[in-house]
C-alpha cells in the first residue's frame, strides 16, 4: 500500500512539476517539459494573468498559467478537448464564479486592476469583459431588446434615441444591420445560426467592453457563417482585445496574431501565430499541430 502511494506521488510530481518560464528559444531542440515556452508576456498589456490555478473540487484543471493579453490583438487558444482552454477563458471575466465547486487562485488584472479584489464588483467587470458563447444564445426577445438589454441594465442610455443609436451602432459593428434593420421587433431566436451568433456579438459590444472573450464561437456554424464571423473578428480587433478559444487550427491561424497552446491544464506555448504554426518550440505543440493527437 505504501509503495503504491509513493509511486502515485512521484507520477503526480513529474506531471505537475513547475518550471520557470523560459525565454523564447530558437533552434530545433524541442522542449519536452511541462513548461511555458515562447513569449507569454507583452509590453503594456490589457490583461495580465499570473500563476492562475483553477480547481474543480479537489481536481486541478489549470496549473499555474501566466499570460498577457495585449491591446487590440486577437489571441487564439488552442489545444485538445479538456485541456482547460475554455476554463481559463472563463476565469478572465469570472464566469467560473457561477460554477459550483470551482475555485480560482492567482492574480488576474485588467488594466492593472485585480479582478478578484474585494472592491471589484463582478457586474461592471463583466460589462468591461464581454463574452460570446459556443452556442448562439440570444434571449427569447426581440432583436432590439437583445441588444438594448445590456445598455439598459447598466444605464448607458439616457433616453430612447440614445438607446436606438447604441443598438444601431452595435448592429453595424457586428455587420448585421443591413440584414435585420427591417425586423428589429422580431424575435432574435428566429434568425439563422450565424446571424444569431453575430447578434450575440452585437449584444456583447453594445456595452462597450474592452475585451471580448469568445468560446468556440463558430463551432455550431456552417463555413459561410464562420467566414463572416472571422471577418468580423478581424474588424473588431481594431477596437477590442479578443480572446478566442477554438478547436480549428485553421481558424486560429486565420484570425489571430498570437496563439496559446494548452495541454492538460498547462499552458505549453505562446507565440506569434505564424511562428507557432510553422516553427513550434515545444514537442507537444508540434505533435498537436501536425495532427499526431488532438
Amino acid at each position: 500500500m505504501e509503495s503504491f502511494l509513493e509511486v502515485t506521488d512521484t507520477v503526480y510530481l513529474s506531471l505537475h512539476q513547475k518550471d520557470t518560464i523560459l525565454p523564447d528559444t530558437k533552434g530545433k531542440t524541442l522542449h519536452k517539459e511541462r513548461e511555458t515556452v515562447g513569449k507569454p508576456f507583452v509590453e503594456n498589456p490589457r490583461m495580465t494573468c499570473r500563476e492562475v490555478n483553477v480547481y474543480y473540487g479537489e481536481k486541478r484543471a489549470i496549473n499555474d498559467v501566466s499570460i498577457d493579453i495585449a491591446h487590440n490583438e486577437v489571441i487564439a487558444m488552442i489545444g485538445p478537448s479538456g485541456c482547460g482552454k475554455s476554463t481559463f477563458l472563463r476565469c478572465l471575466n469570472r464566469m467560473n464564479d457561477t460554477v459550483e465547486g470551482c475555485r480560482v487562485t492567482g492574480d488576474i488584472r485588467l488594466d492593472g486592476m485585480d479582478i478578484h479584489d474585494k472592491s471589484v464588483d463582478v457586474v461592471p467587470l463583466r460589462a468591461r469583459i464581454g463574452m460570446v458563447f459556443q452556442k448562439p444564445n440570444p434571449f427569447p426577445k426581440s432583436i432590439f431588446d437583445n441588444i438594448a438589454y445590456g445598455p439598459k441594465i447598466h444605464g448607458l442610455a439616457q433616453n430612447k434615441s440614445e438607446l436606438n443609436e447604441i443598438v444601431e451602432t452595435s448592429l453595424h459593428k457586428a455587420g448585421l444591420w443591413n440584414e435585420v434593420k427591417d425586423r428589429l421587433q422580431q424575435p432574435g431566436t428566429g434568425l439563422s445560426g450565424g446571424q444569431q451568433q453575430r447578434l450575440c456579438i452585437a449584444r456583447a459590444i453594445a456595452v462597450s467592453p474592452e475585451v471580448i472573450l469568445m468560446d468556440e464561437p463558430c463551432s455550431a456554424l456552417d463555413p459561410i457563417a464562420t467566414a463572416k464571423i472571422e471577418e468580423l473578428i478581424a474588424e473588431l480587433c481594431e477596437q477590442y482585445s479578443i480572446v478566442i478559444v477554438t478547436h480549428s487550427m485553421q481558424q486560429a491561424a486565420r484570425v489571430s496574431q498570437r496563439t496559446a497552446y494548452f495541454h492538460l491544464g498547462d499552458l505549453i506555448e505562446v507565440g506569434r501565430t505564424d511562428r507557432v504554426f510553422t516553427n513550434p518550440s515545444h514537442q507537444l505543440t508540434e505533435d498537436y499541430i501536425t495532427g499526431r493527437f488532438g
Binding site: 471575466n93 464566469m95 463583466r126 464581454g130 452556442k135 441594465i153 456595452v207
Partner: peptide
C-alpha cells in the same frame, strides 16, 4: 430553462 440563457445574461453583466 436552458443554462445558456443564464450565461448570456451573466456574461453581459446582469446581476
Amino acid at each position: 430553462v436552458p443554462p445558456s440563457i443564464r450565461e448570456a445574461a451573466l456574461g453581459i453583466g446582469a446581476s
